[in-house]
Design a protein around this nucleic acid. Sequence first.
DNA 1: TTGTAGGCGTTATCAT
DNA 2: ATGATAACGCCTACAA
Lengths: 336, 336
Amino acid sequence: MANMLDVAKLADVSPATVSRVLTNPDIVSDHTKDKVLKAIEELNYKPNVLARNLRKMENKNILVILPDITNTFFSQVLRGIDQVASENGYRVLLADTKDELDLEHEYLTYLDLKIADAAIMLTSRNVEAIEELARKHQIVLACEYIKDSQLPMVSIDNIKSAYKATKHLIDLGHQKIAHISGPMDIILNKDRFEGYKKALLEANLKFNRDWVKEGEYTVDSGYSEMEKLLQLSAPPTAVFASNDEMAIGAIKAIKNSNMKVPDDIAVVGFDDIKWASIYEPALTTIFQPTFEIGKKAMSILLKLIKEEKEDFQLERKVYEGELVVRKTCGAKNNRD
Amino acid sequence: MANMLDVAKLADVSPATVSRVLTNPDIVSDHTKDKVLKAIEELNYKPNVLARNLRKMENKNILVILPDITNTFFSQVLRGIDQVASENGYRVLLADTKDELDLEHEYLTYLDLKIADAAIMLTSRNVEAIEELARKHQIVLACEYIKDSQLPMVSIDNIKSAYKATKHLIDLGHQKIAHISGPMDIILNKDRFEGYKKALLEANLKFNRDWVKEGEYTVDSGYSEMEKLLQLSAPPTAVFASNDEMAIGAIKAIKNSNMKVPDDIAVVGFDDIKWASIYEPALTTIFQPTFEIGKKAMSILLKLIKEEKEDFQLERKVYEGELVVRKTCGAKNNRD
DNA sequence: TTGTAGGCGTTATCAT
DNA sequence: ATGATAACGCCTACAA
């Protein structure tokens, strides 16, 4: 395969000029540019990105570390990242941790190895490792974040959103509201739990520890946690689940007990994944602007890369989660 | 950041030896190895992959071109690819075409530019471009394939699978079976249509052009095509859809017409995506071994990379699609 | 506007 | 078993 020197010879110019035609055409005279372009064409020359990478000490790859590529929630974020990345000549290097801590750790080493120029983390469990790395590399956290950290971050206000979800149930007249949380080692779920409690407190409803169950983000876990809730001597009349999968699992458990949603028990989810509106009954849930989050995360990352700036405290964006009312919540009359 | 020369100096050896310790430790004596390792440790040296890439003229990136990252069907394939890739020191460079032909084309240029070493195509519309590229690069087609092409390929037998799906409906007593196809410019959908016709023919059922509608793979398109089917003077009693999304859209349309699935109309989907079993009624569909397909595609690609072989005609694998019977098909009594 | 030349950090070849 | 040296192909001062 022809290289730059071959092109230079054929066009009777120096390699430097060929390089200029490729990366900075404006500073080359039209005449030489034509010659070079012709030679490029004739030799079917393609620049060798590997060489360019070494020379420029960058490879335009953005590492995106995410916990589960199977989750459509993340694929929307990915789309947002990808869009802004492409527009700016960057590419996405996919790193699916499958929720394995070790993998997250391994992917993180890509930065030092220069396998990627910078990273967006959609999961962030290795807190110390990330903070350490962020001193030398550009890293943006999205969706998930690190408590008490000043790292650049994009997410929604989980506390407030969970509050909204719970408040919605309270406004509908529910007094016995359960919560199926996600794994509590993830800060998001702590926040959502907190928002739930806050709404309860504000409405002077008693907080019942029995009504809080910890699930694993899956339909199955939503199902089994709901089953436990139903077996309580005083079962709840409404449930707020920390994600849509678990909410749907809960609905299935309710149906399976010959009860109806929303007539007997109301359910609210979280995330508004694609299938939340397709499932029947269509799920009332909290919409996260996933595409926007992805775009914003990548935009911030670009800014960091360009400016090499240290004071990224300001590079944070918190969106509002929006309550999307569909069919899984009904009014509760006060008979019981 | 320290480089190999720094390490060499500190350890008092040549750079070549440091390189050997890193890539071929066995041929270095224990004593020198220790020295080098200690120096690496002390300097916190990390090899520069950019330099290695140039020198070896490869970057261990596998380009995976897929039509829609939002589709969980593909994310399972991705997982399979990723697993085998990781095990062999390769990484996945994600290329989501969003079904845009231009983007597919652009991503394909990555091969010549050496942005990726080889590619797996989960979509293949640019037929000539791909065949052309495959002469110089290693490319494996997965799921989708190219008609009359000898390129390495992994997929299921779509004709046979569609035949199975349709046959299932016939065996249940259905005689008026409609088909909602996917976009007909995709060979998969032609195949599935063919399997459908074959089953009809074999059972001496008449093929009715009015009962075949072309959808766009989405829930919404399944819904609207089904609505058209329901408005027919002689509506079908069963529908075979070319993917699960459309099947679910069809079910929604049926429900919306105050009819029941499977009592009034039976539905079969295709793919067995995650949500096929979660949706209610749980969808009867064709299971594709997506994870296996991904693994196999990557395995074949590795073989091609290693052997640089030309005769990849043999590198093809066709899996069986499996009918998964759930709740959307019922027996049709012969009253009507 | 264009050319010259050095070097990015590694690995492979050839000696020793 | 180890060292010296020459690439890999490109970009970018600096010089002309």
